[in-house]
Amino acid sequence: MTPATSLLSPADVDAIWLTLKLAGTTTVLLLLLGTPLAWWLAHSRARWRGVINALVALPLILPPTVLGFYLLVAMGPDGPIGRFTAAAGLHALPFTFAGLVLGSLIYSLPFVVQPIRDAFIAIGPRPREVAATLGARPLDAFFSVILPLARPGFLTATVLGFAHTVGEFGVVLMIGGNIPQETRVVAIQIYDHVEALEYTQAHWLAGGMLLFSFVVLLALHLLNDRRAQA
């Protein structure tokens, strides 16, 4: 047990650092993978677009421990993901940082894809048509016209994806195995403190997390407001 005199133990600091690393990695990957997906969802006329939309939204509804349990089974030696990683000569994913990133990608997917998709829909076809008449190639038009217009959507997606991953608990609980500096994130550390009756340390970590989340959301609103006024 850590003496109550120090506010954060080295294990707490490790957990905070790991959480930020996980949320950062997940957010960057989701922006890269989620943008093409959001574009497709916004513009495709395919009949199964509805199916994909529903699949993207599914992590919003599934209890995280359920999602985590099926990830644990899928990543296990007999599961499809586990067989794939074994065949590819990769390390098994459960109890690793890479496994947590994969879990977080699924868990936070709707929080990144949906705001970007809605931003693309809100822009509509008009700016692209104008850009095309002015001679811009589609990719050029996307980067110089669409992306700047969709910036509020991307801002929301980034902040929500990051914050939601920071707050992740159930999935990590199921696939993490509580290994320091590898899978023991802040939410797990708080849970352990509470279970061990170390309420003071739990309060400090939880309070910090609450403050962090509030500041992030406040900053998002202020930024969006300023843009709306500009």
């Binding site: 990543m75 030696p77 098994a92 459960p94 109890f95 195995g177």
Partner: peptide
Amino acid sequence: LVHGENIAQTFQFVATGN
């Protein structure tokens, strides 16, 4: 070593082959 949060989860880690 991997840590389950309780004895049920510890069982689950082994039962799923992980």
